[in-house]
Design a protein around this nucleic acid. Structure first.
Lengths: 218, 218
DNA sequence: ATTTATTTTTAGACAAGACTAAAAATTTTA
DNA sequence: TAAAATTTTTAGTCTTGTCTAAAAATAAAT
């Protein structure tokens, strides 16, 4: 059984490994955890002694098999709780993160098994991120950023890159929701802004927006 | 906002105040918290500095107004989560305590407000204990121990004093459940054992059992 | 290939919360 | 009421997780 801090570090390393496949740097981790590099070094040493990460001085850190399993389990719990908060308790999708950050550390195999069943084995959380199953397998999908598509292409909105309340509220205001079909009507080559079709209505969006929306192309 | 340890101490003091109305002793608290008297003294000093308890050396400890409010809020959360686990996730009433001990420390006003609504504002937890409302008011009831009743008297089972899995499983095995009418057919003056009527069937129970069952007399 | 800048680690300190051992206060017993 | 037993507090230490300041290693720049 691991501490709350250990679990949070493992989760952060997991998320950063995509951007740093050769090893997550101390500073990147300090930044992600909003702490100091020296604190990170301390914690990495502890995680390394527990065989949760592979660590060589000045070389960054990588998750071990058991470290990755633990991280994925925490992410599974986080996303299941987010579904609970939105589907059952009526939270908006920009209100769930902080609470799920706490709930993800509750320890009970039965709890998470029964919660999963109660929610009818959801595959994605309210932001469109895939929920690992009890074996730790992620649903993979050919998702791309909306910004990578061109005029005439289309796809289903399946997630957000930035999940800040500000961005999520912008999406709500403009009726952009998960599951929605987006068709690119125009793409301005100068600033990459787009004119898109959403359920019949048209919307002009900047590159900042399209760079934070994940799309599943058919 | 208080730490997990602080909340647990406040809760323990609250529960012990009924048995020690003049002040909860350091040893009683150490026993309840499964810790050492010296650790209790340390913590009491911290709680006292934060004005959560009134404390005089060698005189035991009492909750202040804000300390009692915090304790009641934690108890409210604990009992609401127990209802959730039993009613929504299918836990048995002897499986909920450990998980609720963790869930009771999640901090989110909206969460507990929406959970309460989702559960349809329950008044009692699965063990029959009253759930404080959002103002901290307990439903009071004229509950007595079954052992205090005599031949011919009757009442509704509304709670247990001992909530160990062993006792709860004994009750399940003998079909004694919350809400059930219990009529005392015989009471043996020698050992206080009883013959009771439960929904038509008769059952012989010892004083150990009757001393751990709460009854609401009409 | 040195100097400069950046990143990372070490060293030492701190707070929370717990522990052991011993001292002080209180209560009980004779 | 003095001795014995119990309860409670103090003193000092430990672990976890954090910090600052300084040293060491690596990377970048002249």
């Amino acid at each position: 059984m691991f501490s709350l801090s250990e679990e949070n570090y493992l989760k952060a390393i997991f998320h950063l490994e995509r951007a740093y496949p050769t090893g997550v740097s101390t500073n990147a981790l300090a930044d992600e955890m909003s702490t100091k590099a020296s604190s990170v070094t301390d914690m990495i040493k502890r995680l390394s002694e527990k065989k949760l990460v592979a660590y060589k001085k000045y070389q960054g850190v990588k998750l071990s098999k058991s470290g990755r399993e633990t991280a994925v389990e925490v992410i599974r719990k986080h996303r299941l709780w987010e579904v609970f908060l939105v589907d059952k308790l009526g939270f908006a999708w920009d209100e769930v993160h902080e609470v799920a950050e706490q709930l993800e550390h509750i320890k009970s195999d039965k709890l998470i098994k029964e919660l999963d069943r109660f929610l009818d084995f959801p595959k994605r959380d309210p932001h469109g991120d895939p929920i690992p199953d009890s074996e730790g397998n992620f649903a993979i999908s050919n998702k791309v950023l909306l910004a990578e598509l061109n005029k005439g292409e289309s796809g289903i909105c399946i997630g957000v890159k930035d999940s800040s309340p500000e961005f999520l509220q912008y999406l709500d205001k403009n009726n952009i929701a998960l599951g929605q079909l987006i068709v690119i009507l125009e793409k301005e080559s100068f600033d990459q802004s787009m004119l898109i079709n959403l359920n019949g209505s048209e919307l002009k969006i900047s590159n900042v927006i399209s760079s934070n929306l994940y799309i599943k192309t058919s």
